[in-house]
């Protein structure tokens, strides 16, 4: 029996066009479609597979505003046993680690699965951050996981290859693409999941150690608009190649 916790986050769809508010302190959220962060899909799928193979329970946790309820329903529909929603509008990474950490401390856990990073702010702080907060080990960027006897062997992607790492429970695993192929929830399960219970907690009622954010947001900005490509033309591929290389050397100065 393995006690599995999977942390999932609601983020803007990867296709979203980002518009910045007039005060430059945030983005326009109207019209944005939210999804489960892509790496968290791998984490969720792996949680379900571990349970199917070794037995146990899967608890899905998200911290976020009301709308994040969606992804907990998805988690329940694909096979999670419990869902916890920590209501919060605060997005700070360290605060998220500590708040979710306090909730996890009240639960039994052997494996905590997360995405390698959330695609909204691309922080990648949570996986090893939560492990530190709980005082346990973590293995990041995992593409393969084998569990036996309350320990596991993971293959993790590092620069230039893969590291095969052994660790014992409890441990935090962050999922990299390639870990598995996530399933789709079956339609009847989607409907059933809508009626299931989600435990709701208010982040403000969870006490965490003091933390100084230490700074303030100056502004959000958009990348400077690109002029559009300078087209390289010619009668033959050879002519085009010669022109292109010349431009890269003399104009762009990158060769």
């Amino acid at each position: 029996m393995v006690n599995i916790i999977v942390c999932i986050k609601h983020v803007p769809d990867t296709e979203t066009r980002i518009k910045i508010k007039e005060d430059k302190k945030g983005i326009e959220t109207t019209g944005i479609k939210y999804i489960i962060s892509p790496y968290d899909e791998f984490a969720l799928e792996e949680a379900i597979r571990i349970k199917e193979k070794h037995g146990g329970t899967v608890t899905a946790i998200t911290m976020g505003p009301k709308r994040a309820d969606d992804i907990l329903r998805t988690a329940l529909a694909v096979g999670a046993d419990n869902a916890i929603h920590i209501l919060s509008e605060n997005g700070d990474s360290i605060n998220t680690v500590m708040t979710i950490g306090e909730v996890i401390k009240t639960l039994p856990y052997d494996i905590i699965l997360t995405g390698k990073e959330a695609v909204d702010y691309g922080m990648g702080v949570f996986p090893s951050g939560i492990a530190e907060y709980l005082g346990i080990n973590n293995i990041n960027n995992v593409t393969k996981l084998d569990i036996s006897n309350r320990s596991l062997v993971a293959s993790r992607q590092v620069e230039g290859g893969d590291e095969i790492v052994e660790a014992s429970f409890p441990v935090v695993i962050s999922a990299q693409k390639g870990l598995n192929t996530p399933r789709y929830p079956a339609l009847p399960n989607i409907f059933k999941a809508k009626k299931r219970e989600v435990k709701i907690l208010d982040a403000k009622s969870i006490s965490v150690p003091p933390f100084i954010s230490g700074g303030s947001l100056v502004e959000l900005s958009l990348p400077p608009p690109k002029k559009g490509a300078k087209m390289v033309e010619g009668q033959t591929p050879e002519e085009i190649a010669a022109k292109l290389i010349k431009m890269l050397k003399e104009e762009a100065k990158v060769l």
Binding site: P12, T16, I18, D120, G214, G215, L217, E219, L220, P223
Partner: peptide, 26 residues
């Protein structure tokens, strides 16, 4: 009296600039 830092967010579709001035560690 601090450090200003910029990071790409939303998959490089935007940038965020933060100014840190009062934390003990950064």
């Amino acid at each position: 009296n601090g450090i200003s830092i910029k990071k790409a967010i939303y998959a490089s579709k935007a940038f965020e600039e933060y100014f840190y001035f009062e934390s003990e560690h950064l």
